[in-house]
Design a protein around this nucleic acid. Structure first.
Lengths: 186, 186
DNA sequence: ACCTGAACACCGTTCAAGT
DNA sequence: ACCTGAACACCGTTCAAGT
């Protein structure tokens, strides 16, 4: 007949994220996560394939936490809001956020984020042929910045300096988008 | 009186890098590195403080491997060469390279790389006030791309596509550098 | 269906001891 | 000064067993 589940995949991922937030990524351990949930380590394997899948699940959770801007917003603001949202998630979860750059995500949440950027770029009138590439470069630049900040690569600089860095990054991206593509090689 | 050293810090780091290249970052273990060097794990502690310091040492080695362009080169080519060099190191050491974005480096090699970019930007006539910020953004964008590629975030795309992405990134950076800075907020 | 218990090979690190 | 040996708490994961 079965038995009522005590834990769930979501509970496992939430506990793992809390552990990472509190004590760093090294603290995310099958044993430690199980301890949090008052369960034996082996109980986790019913809900995640293995430790690697647990970390991939963390990526999923982080992506879901990134707010997608409403469709009504002007396209340029949409991109800015998206970038700001990503940066905030990174600052909330600095230990786990770097996983986003390291573990290629093909989950629904990842596709949704990509689609949101595609839509904004299309609304901005970027030629269809350049949209996918522009999305990759924008994502990479914003993620790279957010990871760097979260990991403390800018820690020698005061917060206003880093904030200004981020503003300048967004300005760079705007410049790149407003100018025509390079002509093909001769 | 002492005793002839069997291993050295450099030997430890080289073995760790080989392990990462061959079997991934998880394979870099005090025990495994020691095994490579035919020594007990405890022997390593004479040459690195602990496992964390070993990983920091790996960052050092990776940075040293990035070729610095000669001073005679035109400044724009210098930046391009630097970026291409970084990308090549990432592709040679995909498992360990992400450490560069995660572990803030304040080693001589890191300073040298930063100084090389500063010098190129100065040679390009960028106002002194913007140089440090531009360097941070350029480094972050190039490292973010190199890490993404090394970690396989672009693995759905063929090599020529990724190469073109990189070329486009460099074009974006050139655009950003050639335009005047934004006016301060009113 | 979901969890436990016991177990195994392996990990990072400490301490005392050898040369 | 540099390395070894023994040891400890902890890790990821498997297997068989309970309900």
């Amino acid at each position: 007949m079965g038995r009522a589940a005590q834990i769930s995949r979501e509970a496992v991922l939430a506990a793992a994220l809390r552990l990472a937030d509190a004590d760093g990524l090294d603290a995310v351990t099958m044993h430690a996560v199980a301890r949090q949930l008052r369960v034996t380590p082996m109980a986790l394997y019913r809900h995640v394939d293995d430790k690697n899948a647990l970390l991939d699940g963390l990526v999923e959770v982080l992506l879901r936490e990134c707010p997608l801007p409403p469709d009504g917003m002007p396209w340029e603001e949409r991109l800015t809001a998206l970038a700001a949202g990503i940066r905030e998630v990174a600052r909330r979860h600095p230990a786990s956020f770097p996983l986003l750059l390291t573990r290629p995500a093909v989950t629904p949440a990842a596709r949704a984020a990509r689609a949101a950027i595609h839509a904004a770029l299309r609304a901005g009138g970027l030629p269809e042929a350049g949209i996918a590439r522009a999305e990759r470069l924008i994502s990479t630049a914003v993620l790279g910045f957010a990871v760097s900040e979260a990991a403390g690569r800018f820690r020698q600089h005061d917060q206003p300096v880093v904030d200004a860095d981020f503003a300048e990054l967004l300005r760079w991206l705007r410049l790149a988008l407003e100018l025509p593509a390079a002509p093909p090689p001769a």
